[in-house]
Design a protein around this nucleic acid. Sequence first.
DNA 1: TTGAAAGCGGTACCAG
DNA 2: CTGGTACCGCTTTCAA
Lengths: 364, 364
Amino acid sequence: MTGSTPADPSVARTPGRKVSLRDVAATAGVSPAAVSKVIRNAYGVSPGMRERVQAAIDELGYRPRFAARAMRGSSFTIGLELPELSNDFFTQIVGGVATVLADTPYHLIVAPGLGYLSAEAVLDSLIDRQVDGIIALASKVPLERLEQVGTQVPLILLGRHEASVSFDTVNSDDVAGTRLVLDHLLGLGHTRIAHVTLRPWIATASQTLRHDTYVTHMERAGLEPQVSYVRLVEDSERVGAGTDSHRGVDRDVGEAVAELLSRSPRPTAIFAGHDMLALDTLRVTRAAGLGPHEVAVVGYDGVAIADHPLVDLTTIDQSGPTMGATAIRLLMERILGDRSTAVHEEVGPALRLGRTSAPPVATS
Amino acid sequence: MTGSTPADPSVARTPGRKVSLRDVAATAGVSPAAVSKVIRNAYGVSPGMRERVQAAIDELGYRPRFAARAMRGSSFTIGLELPELSNDFFTQIVGGVATVLADTPYHLIVAPGLGYLSAEAVLDSLIDRQVDGIIALASKVPLERLEQVGTQVPLILLGRHEASVSFDTVNSDDVAGTRLVLDHLLGLGHTRIAHVTLRPWIATASQTLRHDTYVTHMERAGLEPQVSYVRLVEDSERVGAGTDSHRGVDRDVGEAVAELLSRSPRPTAIFAGHDMLALDTLRVTRAAGLGPHEVAVVGYDGVAIADHPLVDLTTIDQSGPTMGATAIRLLMERILGDRSTAVHEEVGPALRLGRTSAPPVATS
DNA sequence: TTGAAAGCGGTACCAG
DNA sequence: CTGGTACCGCTTTCAA
């Protein structure tokens, strides 16, 4: 309530107009063009000029506006599209990107799908913002659309094994990762290993590769693949999810897992398509009173909570931070014009053993 | 590099220049001003005009650029400052905000501190972006700075119990919430209840209120408050955290909890300042082989993982989504000019019982 | 109701 | 190396 004091100087600081580049130029006694060069560290300014301009900038507390810069030059903004924020794997990627960006004049806009916004809408919005480059997860956007985006703005895709020419990709080796999981479970003595995942949608998506590798690896081992698909949740159904509780099992995941558990003979191990699915799977198995020896559970991603002693989930570490750092490194190469041919990098997956996977009990 | 395929029509769609408002005007045979009015749903356009313009917009696939709009009018962008993304409570808030925003032409920019960027830097950056309004957590920014920001742009603060006139606040009733925790533990028979939290910094921050309430409530119950403070991590030390693993106990939290456990007599219960601290606390107690009956643990926030059967953390549900939804509602009131006096809303906290809090074993 | 024209605050080009 | 200046695409008076 500083309002009771009629003229409070501490709040009075509301200049009629923000200080502009022209103001700086006037104060420093130079041209606007010169100031522009200084703030961009552009070529062709004498040390004396730079100094005087910098002094004026400091004196006036000048800060360039992104909007004005974006009109002519670059927006100094990187857009990061991702499906949601409640999945820790995605926020690990954000961390990796942000750390690299910290030493640059570029800023990061985190643009989650947030349930109601599709990845395509998010990409459009980033383009409307004239970002200088985009990093995207975009696991469900058609390739043609991505290629098109890639011709408009430098683009890096994560989790899509596309041999695109217009954009780069960064992926974990999902085939190798899946084999790590299966060999681990097979090594423990499991034979009835089920897989719970989203219904394959894009053939090149990480999820799909894990699924396909699971199937072929099982068959090669002479075992029967058992997949339970989580029903795709329509966007319309998701509206309002934000105000609901985050809690409880996603109904569809719950059903998918319950369906697996009801099979006879029951699977002794469940390989979940990613860690959030694995956590939900554990909700169901624990609710059913089934421990690691009855049903082993393995995830994929390496979310932070996975190695909490109370959870201790066996999973594949995808090195989210490294993926993010790699992505922004590749993106900056393109933005700075250092490279214009597509590259496709992979980071190695690593098995992280936890208590949720154990040998099956010897019944049968 | 569409270069390999000489003339690929699917990728060829790279118009030399994006379609502008002027193009739409030309196509529709009207003035740019008219188009501007139509896309803003502004007053003073005849139905016929609107229809023709809309047709041209659809035909050309016109999309207004945020930068240009921000130059003169509003940016149709809301900025959300928050300390980090790896804390699920914060992303719950984001969800609440996003859901309400879904029905408006406004877009959300999520701007996390990301370790290296301080809240103040993030706020500055949002202002440079000319966002139309800001929602901030900003738990460590001095009040004067916030008041100043509040005079520049509509501002809503979360987790700060300030009676400001220049900005609104949305808070959980931290006093009531803390009492719920303590009464629960006292009811279970605990007397040696410790508190682990960040060292109080801002007197009006939620964390501080919980701390202060803990102290007074304990004293009023005739018990001795025992607080262990987590050392503040300097920003400089945090750089690079993004590429490190998210895993393991924050060294400082670990030390703070270990210090508590080494006291004699040992506390039988630990009230953590928020859920992420509680999870780290559980890491330490479990590593020390101490179960709920040796050391009860209670958190605060209601993160999603708290109610996982493997964790089952007793905590206070702060209704993050509701807080976010409330915040954006208040912000839109200010942006649309419906209100110019500050309001300060509170949402009620609720105790959520879990397995991590149990009566103390009868030793003494 | 409609449109002409003057910017918003930077950048880029080009002449000095 | 420096500075004048024409823009970028949209919004906003203000006349017609």
